[in-house]
Amino acid sequence: MQHDDVKSNVLTTTLESAINWGRKNSLWPMPFGTACCGIEFMAALAARTDISRFGAEAIRFSPRQSDLLIVAGRISIKMMPVLIRIYEQMPEPKWVISMGACASSGGVFDTYSVIQGIDRFIPVDVYIPGCPPRPEGVVDGLIKLQELVDKEKFSDYAPPATNS
């Protein structure tokens, strides 16, 4: 093999950054759209902002095929058990984006029936502000999440808890 071939065909990296690179550029979102944020999320998928440019166009409505949960809209007390179940059905590693004011804090709906922020019960990685956020905001949140995924350390991965 010639020296030039080696230079143009071999790349040295760490396994960690190679895996993170792969993960961050092929996030498969599971949209949980319960309100107007869901409509804005659809706009983020469409031609003008087109999140497939960031590798996140493979929308799966099955949690078992997704690694990114996008909670878009207010979550009522009747919907929260469903959301928890869907989150637990997603395979690891998984990330959560809380899109919009209602999912992040309950928004203006300070009533008995609306969860005051999904981060009270499930872990959230990125919050997108807005009521509803513009599609550009969704893209920005996705890029922020990609930065987080890129910084993940294998040493952070604790073994699953055992119940012995």
Partner: peptide, 17 residues
Amino acid sequence: ERDNFPIVERRIGRKAQ
């Protein structure tokens, strides 16, 4: 009733420990 749900912790990855 809106505060009365199980808290799901992060199992692996960032901040899991």
